[in-house]
Design a binder for these strands. Structure first.
Lengths: 159, 159
DNA sequence: CTAGTTTATTTGACACAGCAACTACTTCCC
DNA sequence: GGGAAGTAGTTGCTGTGTCAAATAAACTAG
């Protein structure tokens, strides 16, 4: 393995600031949603994903992938949401292994009630603090960082 | 309350990319550290904070603040680290309510062993993907976002 | 000096995430 | 057709985080 290149001064200051954001921002979003809508971020994401479908319906595995969560976690989340009557679960007609989760009326109502507060929090914590130019810059940067696994194999020797 | 201003197109794309980073990057760092050093990120942070002190020693409350974690969580983390003999806990001589956590030799050794892999991961997932200009830009942006609570009270009516 | 308050930390109860084992169904292939 | 292999989803176990209550020491005022 290489001599591990330490971070230089600019990188270190950038990293400290980024680490703080990585740590505190999700917590701040989570806590707003929990307090105002009694939903976890993951619950909210699931409701959003379902709401974006025309039929408000998705297979568990697909839902897990779009909400970036594991199947087992999703299974428990949906069980919770089902208990709260925000979604229903039914066997898929074409493949009887699969389960279709469907957003209910009250689930949609819950989402509609929760979304404005969440968006306001995003605005307050992110966009109110950035200039339009920074927003564009952030988009590029975030996109560059957005796929941690992609370059996993690039550590190896060049072919 | 205001009409909740929805996000515009630029903000929405920025938010989607940022949300992904917020979700995946910590997980990728966590999992490298867990796999290669059997440490949680929070454990690592605690070791780092202690190592940065000349005496390798800090009060629990101070440690909780610098690692951005709750006291109760820190208490359990340090209990774990103590069980692994990476830190010791002792009553503070001047204030007998307080507890001083001290990094042990083997705790420092653990940190020294874990750090290069962690830094390499940070480099691989962050700095290898950004231009120097983007690093500077990121610093500004991250600093602007870094204190979610600061403006919490600004929502209320001015006194 | 002593009752009440504030500060520092831990702990019990409960909820949730991750892993691995499990069930149930489908597909592949001879 | 029928068994092996693969896929979809759930669940038991265990570890960890959170909240609130508990403990204990230090201030603060009368």
């Amino acid at each position: 393995m290489d001599e591990p290149e330490w971070l230089n001064a600019e990188e270190l200051t950038a990293w400290k600031a980024l680490a703080e954001v990585l740590f505190l921002l999700p917590a701040a979003l989570e806590s707003q949603l929990q307090r105002d809508a009694d939903l976890a971020m993951a619950d909210y994401m699931v409701l959003v994903m379902l709401s974006e479908r025309d039929d408000h319906c998705m297979r568990m595995s697909e839902l897990a992938a779009s909400a970036s969560t594991s199947q087992s976690r999703l299974s428990r989340i949906v069980a919770r949401l089902e208990a709260a009557e925000f979604v229903t679960r039914e066997m898929a007609p074409d493949d009887r292994r699969a389960v279709l989760a469907t957003l209910t009326e009250s689930g949609l109502a819950k989402l509609v009630a929760a979304a404005p507060g969440h968006v306001a929090q995003v605005r307050r914590l992110v966009f109110d603090r950035l200039t339009p130019a920074q927003v564009l810059s952030l988009t590029d940067i975030a996109r560059a960082l957005a796929h941690p696994d992609d370059h996993a194999a690039c550590d190896g020797p060049p072919r």
